[in-house]
């Protein structure tokens, strides 16, 4: 499914700024403007410390900007109250992390069920089973994360990110901890799912190979978009 440039952007950032306080404040993002079309896959590339992860965290609602605006599907999320932000994270966006961030004491199936269970969905187990099947781990539902390889864990994380039907997928260095073969598999999976479900994908990476798969690539340096 191709990005729909004619409809409202899936993600829109205006004059976005993020400063981490401290003895010497760190400006992670500075006056950043960005738009991502619905269904587009956008790669954010840059060195460590360029602000890629920070941008994803702000768009994902797990951190708040110091100033500026973020709109997702037309809704401003920077000003959402805590309770609404929790629902946003649960229903509207799915995140995939570099370190997988699976819960080690839950089974693979339970990890994928969790967001839907938090939402009170009665079909959490069935949806999770279908998603695991889709990512090729239908038979590993009873295993625990520590029994899986890195690539398998990342596929579980992708399944979890889709559990509540989110339309926006944010992947922060999803192949950073994987070998090239597993990395390729994960990137391929993300691509397939994006096209199947028409989700918008923002991918932070310093891998050229990962960036090459995206519809568009944006470079970042020192908290700004660089040309």
């Amino acid at each position: 499914m191709s990005p729909d440039a004619s409809s409202a952007p899936a993600v829109s950032c205006r004059a976005l700024r993020k400063v981490y306080p401290g003895a010497e404040p760190v400006v992670a993002l500075e006056s950043l403007d960005l738009e991502v079309a619905a269904g587009e896959s956008l790669a954010l590339v840059g060195e460590s410390g360029s602000g890629k992860s920070t941008l994803l965290h702000l768009v994902g609602g797990i951190d708040r900007p110091t100033s500026g605006e973020i709109r997702v599907a037309g809704r401003s999320i920077a000003s959402l109250a805590e309770r609404e932000l929790v629902l946003y994270r649960r229903r509207d966006v799915g995140m995939v992390f570099q370190f997988f961030n699976l819960l080690p004491h839950l089974t693979v199936l339970e990890n994928v069920e969790l967001p839907r269970r938090l939402d009170g969905g009665p079909d959490a187990a069935e949806r999770a089973a279908r998603l695991l099947e889709r990512v090729g781990l239908g038979r590993r539902g009873a295993a625990h994360p520590y029994e899986l390889s890195g690539g398998e864990m990342q596929r579980v994380a992708i399944a979890r990110a889709l559990a509540t039907g989110a339309r926006l997928l944010l992947a922060d260095e999803p192949t950073g901890n994987l070998d090239s073969r597993n990395g390729e598999e994960v990137l391929g999976l993300l691509d397939e799912i994006r096209r199947e479900r028409g989700v918008t994908l923002l991918l932070a990476t310093h891998s050229a190979a990962a960036a090459a798969r995206a519809d568009r690539t944006v470079a970042m340096k020192d908290g700004r978009l660089s040309r």
């Binding site: 797990i62 229903r91 995140m95």
Partner: peptide, 9 residues
């Protein structure tokens, strides 16, 4: 992680 995937406080 739980907070990131939408678990309330």
């Amino acid at each position: 992680t739980l907070r990131a995937i939408g678990a309330p406080r």
